[in-house]
């Protein structure tokens, strides 16, 4: 169905955006009951997914350096 295919496991922003869409369309109440139930299921999954993402505890820090060719290299920071 249309709903579950859009489920993004990518960025938090994507997930939250989709979650907002679901909230909006459910609040608007224009979808059919079947769709509403599907949106609900997707929404619950997304909210769990988002909450999971927010549980990260370690801030990743990396350093951007220019390599010889002028491209960029990402290096871990020395201190940690």
């Amino acid at each position: 169905m249309m709903a579950s295919k859009k489920l993004q496991r990518g960025s938090l922003e994507g997930s939250l955006k989709r979650l907002e869409e679901i909230v909006d369309s459910l609040e608007e109440g224009k979808v059919s009951l079947d769709e509403a139930v599907q949106l609900y299921e997707e929404g619950i999954l997304l909210s769990k997914d988002c909450a999971e993402k927010l549980k990260a505890t370690e801030l990743k820090i990396r350093k951007l350096a220019k390599s010889v060719g002028g491209d960029f290299e990402i290096a871990e920071t020395d201190e940690e």
Partner: peptide
Amino acid sequence: DRFEILEVIRNYEYTIRQAVTQRI
């Protein structure tokens, strides 16, 4: 603040639960 977002998500969850329950 991630705790604020968690709160937002919890609200979303509540809202969609309510919306679907209402529909039913």
